[in-house]
Design a protein around this nucleic acid. Structure first.
Lengths: 216, 216
DNA sequence: CTCCAAGTTAAACAACTGTTTCAAACATTA
DNA sequence: TAATGTTTGAAACAGTTGTTTAACTTGGAG
């Protein structure tokens, strides 16, 4: 049974090439030739290039969401949850899941691409499949930052999402600079340790005076 | 003299389409047909699609850097510069420059695409042409956050760069959500007002205990 | 007016894209 | 062993891509 082998090899290669060059810039021929499988294999096993992209994401996000949902269920039973506690759980799940492959940075790069690259279908896919988990998280976040206006919290979530995704997705380049300029061999765990106090402080920053809402 | 007219129309259309769909997903035919210009005009006036992309950026960044450099020169003469002061200058220049066109959000989206979309040549172009201005900025930032270890500052700069670029590049989608969920008509100026305290707090967050540097 | 460079146009170029086809090879069950 | 359904293989499909060519139009200087 060579099937699973072909599927896995396509997924591995596609993941690497997508992260390296982007979705539109990576052709099926580039994937299949490097993976040493036939060109038609992608359409046979996945149906289309779109579906392949989604499958690459699902391989990361499905196990992540499963673990994260379990942790969220525990937190939801508690009477109150601190911001540090919630972020620590998020960080732990993010690190632990792809530990088998050790390529968290690759996945973060993909996530960044999915959001910024104008692949509308990816945003829709992520929303449909993982929106509910995200909602559970934001509900807990609301409890742990109750004094923050809803709109303010909304924007800050995306500021911090950007900080994480952007840094992680450029990780290799930044790590090289950090090494040559500051003699620092930054591991993912170090980066998370750096991120936690920054994100916490950002979420707790003073709220600016209400901007006067003008029409248009 | 229809030349300048053609060039400007190409730039305007390309800018809009790039922001809307991304670089790779926007064909020269899509640009030229919407701009009501002949297909060959792009290669005639700009040389290649790559050069057109760079020209779209230069139209924003050249005037921005000119103004920003002037402001930086003023700050460099002062004996000390506060973090708020420096960030406020950055925000002011960012807002003021494209005021004539009112499409700062378009440019921000382009900037986000340039960094996240794996167009290697764009990163190189930005570094080569505007790296020195960025260096002047980071030097002042070092003065205004002298108690921060260099490596820590380095990472935080990129955290915050990510927050800005990522948010801006998804701006339209986020703005729609903010409008429907919080009845908020977010203007760019509002967003900058929200960003300033967050970035300030993030840069001033407590430094985590030195991560033990292990080999590998 | 003449002439020349600058700009525009339509057409064709070669290369590449995702997808489909159908015969061959394979593994599995009866 | 024979029959079955699944997986691979090479080739072709129809469409799009960025770029180039060469003929054509135009505006202004000599």
């Amino acid at each position: 049974m060579a099937q699973s082998d072909t599927v896995v090899r396509i997924l591995d290669t596609a993941e690497a090439l997508f992260a390296e060059k982007g979705f539109a810039e990576t052709s099926l021929r580039a994937i299949t030739s490097r993976a040493k499988v036939n060109l038609a294999a992608v359409n046979y096993h996945f149906g289309s290039k779109k579906a392949l992209i989604q499958a690459v994401f699902a391989r990361y996000l499905d196990p992540f969401c499963e673990e994260f949902n379990q942790e969220l269920a525990i937190l939801e039973k508690k009477s109150e949850v601190s911001l540090e506690e919630l972020l620590e759980v998020l960080a732990r799940c993010t690190i632990s899941v792809p530990a088998t492959k050790g390529s968290l940075s690759v996945f973060m790069r993909l996530l960044g691409l999915a959001y910024t690259q104008a692949q509308g279908h990816m945003r829709r896919y992520l929303q449909e499949h993982y929106g509910q988990t995200f909602l559970r998280f934001t509900n807990l976040l609301k409890l742990s930052s109750a004094d923050l206006p809803d709109a303010e919290r909304f924007w800050r979530i995306h500021f911090m999402l950007g900080a994480v995704v952007f840094t992680m997705s450029s990780l290799d380049a930044l790590r090289d600079i950090a090494l040559s300029d500051y003699d620092e061999k930054t591991r993912i765990a170090d980066l998370v340790a750096r991120l936690l106090p920054v994100v916490t402080a950002a979420m707790q920053a003073p709220v600016p005076e209400q901007p006067e809402l003008v029409k248009q």
